[in-house]
Nucleic acid binder design. Sequence first.
DNA 1: TTTTTGACGATTC
DNA 2: AGAATCGCCAAAA
Length: 110
Amino acid sequence: MNTNFFEDVYDVVRLIPKGRATSYGAIANFLGSKISARMVGWAMNAAHGQDDNIPAQRVVNRMGLLTGKMHFNTPTKMQELLEADGLIVEDDQIKDFKKHFWDPAIELEI
DNA sequence: TTTTTGACGATTC
DNA sequence: AGAATCGCCAAAA
């Protein structure tokens, strides 16, 4: 499985600290600043079959909206997980998202 | 092999 | 300010 691209995405997602959240675009930018955020979403789509625990709930769109909640076991699971992380989710959106925003390009300092 | 779509993002109208 | 459209790249049909 040469899913390097996916693995890179998973790796970054796994590195997201608890209580923080990032966006698809941020990950895309971190991976190479050439791939589009859509690819990250695609990678997450493939993450279903992955045996790894991908905290996809910490990965949301740029607005902090839980766009992929429907891809979880239950649409409400994503919000629950985020709340369990200490984040506040209201109306499928992370409150103070930019406040809890976790940018791999900055936190990982590459 | 070509076409369509996809958990996004930014720009333009 | 809001809505619609284009752009990114890859995988599945």
